[in-house]
Structure formats: C-alpha cells, structure tokens
Computed example of a mutant assay.
Amino acid sequence: MTEESTSGRVSRRKFLAATGSVGAVGLAGCTQSGSGGGGDGGDGLSGTIDIAGSSTVFPLATAMAERFQSEHSDVNINIQSTGSGGGFANHFCPGRTDFNNASRPIQPTEEEACSGNDVTPVELTVATDALTVIVNNDNDWVDCITVEELHEIYSAESSPTTWSDVNSDWPDQPLELYGPTDASGTYDYFIEAILGEEGPGHRQDYSATEQDRTIIQGVEGSENAIGYLGFAYYSQNTDRVKALSVDDGSGCVEPSLETARAGEYTPLSRPLFTYAKQESLAEEHVAEFARFWLENATSQEIVADEVGYVPLSDEDQQEAMDALESAIENAQG
C-alpha cells in the first residue's frame, strides 16, 4: 500500500483530495518513540499514539490529531488506513495500536481476539456518516436507486452483468462495479443494510479497493460504473462523480449531512467509531487525546465543514465521554 505523510496543519479538503484514504500519516512536532510511551514535554504531554482502522474515519482522526498536536507538540500520532476489520485483526487486537477506527461495531470474534491478548476495547461514537452510492457524471438514466436495485446489483446470487438486467428502463450496457474490500467496515455495513446478513453475500467480481480515491477514479472514468463509499470522500469530489438518491420504500432521499442528521437517509446512514485500548489510557497523553477527540466531536467546523460527517449531538457526546472517563478511571486507578 502506498504511504503518504504530512506534518503540521494542512487544509482538510486539500489533504483528502490529495490522499484519499491511502496509507499512513505521521503527524508530529518533536517525537518520542514507542507506542503508548509517556513522558514530559514542554506542556507536560509527550509520547506516541498509534491508530489504525477504517478508511472512512481516517480523515476525521487526522483532523483531530492535527489540532491536538498543534497544542501538544511533543506527542507523535501515527494513523494508518487499513480498513475496520484489518485494523482489528492486524493491529489493535494484537496490541500494536492504541486506537482502532471503525465504520461498524466491533464483532464478537474480534472482541474474543482482543481479550486473548489482554486488550480491552472501549467503544466511542465519534460521528455519523451517509454511505454514498456514486455513478459517472454522464450517467443520465438513473438519479435515484431503490434498495432492491442495489441489492440485485451487488448480490452474489443475482450478479447481473448489464444495467438493463436490473431495470429494463436502463441501457443494455455492462455494469462496472467498484467498492471497498472485505476488510472494510463500509463493506460490512453495506452487507448489513442492503444485502442482509443472512443473504447470499456480496458478489466478488468487482473492483475492490481500500483506497477511496480509487473508487472515485474508477467511477469517474467509465459511464457504466457504479460504486459506494463514505460521504466525506464524495463531498470532496462532487464535480467528478454523481451521487444517487436512495429509495427505501418511502421515496427518494439524497445523501447529505442534513438527511443523515434527520434520520431520513435510510438505510445507509450509520454511526462511526473509534475504539480506545483501555490499557493505553493509563498513559496521560493517550487519555488526553481521547478526551480531546470527544470534546471536539460536536464541532460543526471540524466534523461537518472540514471532513464531511454529522457531528455528535450533546447527548451522544456525553454518553461517549462517560464511557471514556470510566475506562480512564479503570486504567489509571
């Protein structure tokens, strides 16, 4: 996987446009080595924080890390975009990272894997996303798609090969499908919301990638393409691809922060998470970063305007903060 890095404060929109969800980002002033290591910097906080997981949560985590490090220059934060499942399996549950970003809840098998390595995950809701279905700008035959049509397009059981196989009003042109890999929480959520967990599963004859910008590029490059990804990446590329409204039986609703916030964009609006490793919260710089993230999770400027997600409500923020403070007390007590 290609790696990109940046340091200091950068434009969120320029950063997303340049990197998509690719690779790893290290954000640092003066750095200390060793995951979870603490120490005393000029402001009393220093050490390294390692984060992996969801490509969807990646830009939000990066935005929070930039701001935290502007206040705490002796803290080094490393963020990798690995997919929710890839982060749990390869980084977080083995004890290699302090946080795992996720665009779906942790699964029982992942909780068991974490427990086996004495890792206690603490679930923190950080935003709401509107999973977005995109097509090429030259696609003039569909502006709204039903849940049933999405199911047929991506189902392993039906596996249509042309647009007209799905809807006779659509052209007899080949379907070109894009989407995330099976390591992605976006993939898991799409199965849950559209295909059904007990259904035949997600078809595998599609262009799968953990790089959201590759989905944008693929759909932009072919009139016959369709794909899906988190709203933040679409919101940075509205001139390059077209988002479809979704009809779940109650009429067509476009993906937007407003419709997701109002609960109207169903079934593709979803909560986003970061999971803190409770044991790492014993280190003050890790605990303070977690607090900082939640304190800013209600920010319209950061969460909505810069990144493209729905900020937490005050009630949801308080619930997450209560869970965090309890975990910090357990870790430091």
Rank of each mutant, 00 (worst) to 15 (best):
D247F: 01
E288C: 06
F289G: 05
A243Q: 08
A208M: 13
A208F: 12
D322Y: 03
Y265S: 06
Q318T: 15
V241K: 01
D322I: 04
A320V: 11
E315Y: 12
Q236L: 08
F292Q: 06
N296K: 01
S245K: 15
A225R: 11
V303W: 00
V219L: 12
Y234S: 06
A260P: 00
L312G: 05
R291S: 05
L244T: 08
V246T: 13
Q236N: 07
E258F: 02
K277V: 10
Q217R: 11
D239K: 03
D212R: 05
A208C: 13
M321D: 08
E223I: 13
K277G: 05
E210F: 10
L312W: 00
M321T: 11
R240S: 13
T209Y: 01
Y234P: 03
Y233M: 13
Y233D: 12
Q236K: 04
S269M: 08
S299V: 03
Y265D: 10
A260F: 01
V303N: 01
Y275S: 07
V286W: 10
A323G: 05
G308A: 10
Y234H: 04
W293G: 07
R213K: 10
E254Y: 09
T266P: 02
Y234D: 08
A297T: 00
A287R: 10
I302K: 02
G308W: 00
S256P: 08
A276Y: 03
S313F: 09
Q211I: 15
G218H: 07
Y265N: 07
P267A: 10
Y228E: 15
E279A: 09
L312D: 03
T209F: 03
Q317E: 12
G263L: 03
S299G: 01
K242W: 02
C252T: 04
A225T: 13
Y228W: 13
G263T: 04
L244I: 08
P311V: 01
R291Y: 06
Y275I: 04
E210G: 15
M321E: 13
E295V: 07
Q317P: 00
E306L: 01
A243T: 06
T266H: 05
E315C: 08
W293H: 10
E283K: 13
A287Q: 14
E223V: 14
R240G: 04
F292E: 04
A290V: 08
G251R: 07
L281Y: 01
R213S: 14
V303E: 06
T266E: 15
E254G: 13
M321R: 11
L244G: 06
Y234F: 13
F289L: 06
Y265F: 12
D322P: 01
E254W: 07
P255L: 08
D316G: 04
E279L: 14
F273R: 02
Y234G: 06
D248I: 11
Q317R: 11
T266N: 14
A297H: 00
A282S: 14
S313D: 14
A232E: 15
E258P: 02
M321W: 09
D239H: 03
L244S: 09
F273V: 00
G230F: 00
E210N: 15
C252A: 15
D248E: 14
G227Q: 11
A232K: 13
P267Y: 04
C252Y: 02
E210Q: 15
E223Y: 03
A262R: 08
Q217W: 02
Y265A: 09
D247R: 00
Y233V: 14
S269K: 04
G221W: 09
F231P: 00
I302F: 03
E295A: 13
A287I: 12
V219F: 04
A260Y: 01
V303D: 05
A290M: 12
